[in-house]
Write a protein that binds this DNA or RNA. Structure first.
Lengths: 206, 206
DNA sequence: GAATCCCCTTACCGATTGGTAGGGACGTTG
DNA sequence: CAACGTCCCTACCAATCGGTAAGGGGATTC
């Protein structure tokens, strides 16, 4: 459902793909539609022909990401217990393919920006995805008695841990050097799995 | 050292203050120097007179924040045990004064952007601050044997949990409504303290 | 073969961007 | 009083922003 239904990568698909990469890298205000078009060997009017406005193009990028996030759950094995599934889910989210890093960057930018552009934009795409995570957490033994606020706070904390890492790669490479950053990156998945397990086992606080 | 050495709030200080607020809200590219000046009842040339370029103004804002972060440690009681201090530190970081939310937003934006503007900018200001946190974590019982990579990964996870929350307030308010978001916000500090304690007690993974 | 539609072009628009040049008001210093 | 430095102004600049208008090439359809 999230993958292409057209035989080959159409110009339109290439536009969205390039827009996703550039918006993730530089943010909504940091990229112009002319730049996106230029990287595809086109003019900005080609972009405007397909999407009308820059905002609409950005919205489609977010929509695509929301779809990919929904697909993420489907990739998990349905049989396993809830704690294991949540753990797998968070680990799957940080597999450092460029696409997933782009996704984290874009979501974080959207969270920072959407209060500004004052349109709900990606927020509403995110709601079902957050609700699903909260539901999965509630199914974990020991968490069924937690309040919604507790569940949501915990999910936000875990999401923050995951996305912050995905996003901060280049910065930490600049600070600690390539090899130290790589070492941290190699160990991060295990460390994250460990942290998720520990947090889930402890249950909500008082 | 981080606080003012001039008697009253000079125009220059007011400029930095306003710039911090606007950069946090809309990002480097999302704010023009003319807008910053206009909110102070000045023209952009007044800004350029003091700082020369927009980049330099932005750099000073980051520098000021790095100083404030350094001060954060000094605010903690020195006598308490390392685990308690780390816990206090993270909780102090999320006290939702507007200033601290601005700070979180700006740091997150800087992490997202600085790979783009390709100047180390805030990265190097952050290094001592990160090293200090890693040092505090190493002093916690059970963590002395952890590798640098493990310590750093854990710090990043905790920082992510904290900053993500600080930043996502408006978005979650949009998604879940004001009262639900407020409930989550009220409980977040306790939940964070709980999580930090659990993670510290569990020690690093295998 | 004419009409139509799709995709993308050149040409242009007003508004805004970061930044430069130069000057005026004001206080301090000689 | 003259000179000077600080602070902020108006005026202006080329470049770029998102977006509109109009048209052309190529394939499809009648």
């Amino acid at each position: 459902m999230a993958t292409a239904f057209k035989p080959s990568a159409s110009t339109r698909d290439r536009m969205i793909e390039k827009a996703r990469a550039l918006f993730a890298e530089r943010g909504f205000y940091g990229v112009s539609i002319a730049q996106i078009a230029a990287e595809l060997g086109l003019t900005k009017q080609a972009l405007l022909h397909h999407f009308g406005t820059k905002e609409r193009l950005y919205g489609l990028v977010l929509e695509q990401i929301a779809g990919a996030l929904a697909d993420l759950k489907a990739e998990l094995e349905p049989g396993t217990d809830p704690a294991q599934r949540l753990q797998d889910w968070f680990v799957a989210m940080i597999s450092d393919t460029p696409l997933r890093i782009e996704r984290s960057r874009l979501l974080m930018r959207e969270i920072l920006d959407n209060q500004v552009r004052a349109e709900r934009a990606g927020s509403w795409y995110l709601k079902p995805f957050l609700d699903e995570l909260v539901g999965m957490l509630r199914d974990v033994p020991g968490w069924s008695g937690a309040t919604d606020a507790q569940l949501r706070a915990t999910i936000v904390q875990l999401l923050g841990a995951v996305n912050y890492h995905a996003v901060s790669g280049p910065t930490f490479r600049g600070i600690f050097g390539t090899e130290a950053a790589q070492a941290m990156n190699d160990i991060f998945a295990a460390q994250l799995r460990h942290m998720v397990r520990v947090v889930l086992e402890a249950g909500p606080g008082a």
